[in-house]
């Protein structure tokens, strides 16, 4: 490769030289293109966000309005997703439930990430004693399956949407803490941190300028992936009657309500379930998309 390019054509051809060096075609080194799955996930995310912020745009009706005469209606032109045992429109309820589900999912993830970041950063920076203590504590938490931990919390603090948020947040925190700590340790021993030491940066500035940003950047990906998981868990808690309480239009609660009639009115469980799955898949796809781009940044 002609090094004279340094002086001659410094601009242009980003990445091409790199690809040459590793013997691969330049195409492989380029940023990934947006693919169909990502477009679909993006549109779905837009739809879900609209449903959460302004549900009346998509479903002008009242999600709690009952109409006993049209109870157990199968999907039709008037009731796209059918109606439930009290004649409430399931489409309206599913759209309206997006807010609860997203709020629960996002806040639970934020709590989990926040707690995980604090624990992980403490373990990674405050010395061997703190590291040891935090690790043993995390191991105890890991000994319980995550959902069991959430159940335990709700048992103590009582059911409800609020407890479900905190419970799911708490039960995901140990995983985040582990990942953050591992990332921190990896970054801490990396060559660029050593190079910063050689330049004469103080420990605090190395931590603030190099270690923390490089540790916390992957959290965006983790968080997006985590929202999907948190929504599923929150729905699971509601399904068990421990999260949002009926007749609230929350997907997990709706799923639970439809359970009794699953043989006669499948749509009561199917559509809330479909949206839980779609949301989780959408969050995961977006998380992966961000991850792929970060790797190429």
């Amino acid at each position: 490769m002609s090094e004279l390019e340094i002086t001659a054509s410094a601009a242009g051809r980003p990445g091409a030289q790199d690809a040459e060096q590793s013997g691969r075609p330049a195409e492989a080194a380029r940023r990934p293109r947006i693919n169909a799955v990502e477009i679909a996930a993006g549109l779905l995310a837009l739809l879900l966000l609209t449903a959460a912020i302004a549900p009346q745009l998509l479903a002008p009706g009242d999600p709690l309005a009952i109409d006993p005469l049209s109870a157990f209606g199968a999907p039709s032109w008037t009731h796209w997703f059918g109606t439930d045992e009290s004649g409430r429109d399931i489409y309206t309820r599913v759209i309206d439930g997006a807010r609860d589900s997203l709020v629960i999912g996002v806040s639970a993830t934020l709590i989990g990430l926040g707690l995980g970041a604090v624990l992980g950063t403490a373990a990674g920076t405050l010395g061997a004693a703190v590291d040891f203590t935090v690790n043993r504590f995390l191991e105890v938490l890991f000994a319980f399956p995550g959902l069991l931990l959430a159940l335990l919390f709700i048992l103590v603090f009582g059911p409800g949407a609020g407890s479900a948020i905190v419970a799911v947040g708490l039960s995901t925190a140990p995983g985040y803490a582990r990942i953050i700590r591992a990332q921190l340790v990896r970054v801490r021993s990396s060559a660029f941190v050593e190079a910063a030491t050689v330049q004469g940066l103080s420990r605090a500035r190395i931590l603030g300028r190099h270690i923390l940003p490089n540790t916390l950047a992957p959290l965006l990906v983790l968080g997006t992936l985590g929202v999907g998981q948190a929504i599923v868990w929150a729905a699971a808690l509601s399904y068990l009657g421990l999260g949002a309480q009926p007749p609230a239009a929350e997907w997990g609660a709706m799923l639970a309500a439809g359970r009794t009639y699953i043989t006669s009115a499948w749509w009561m469980s199917f559509f809330p379930g479909l949206f839980i799955v779609l949301t989780a898949v959408c969050a995961t796809a977006l998380g992966r998309a961000i991850e792929r781009r970060m790797r190429h940044a």
Binding site: M1, E3, I6, T7, A10, Q17, D18, Q21
Partner: peptide, 18 residues
């Protein structure tokens, strides 16, 4: 001996010598 045009690139976009 580097051109100022490289300033806004990331090191991953440079050749080994650069």
């Amino acid at each position: 001996g580097l051109s100022a045009a490289l300033l806004d690139r990331r090191p991953t976009d440079l050749s080994g010598g650069q």
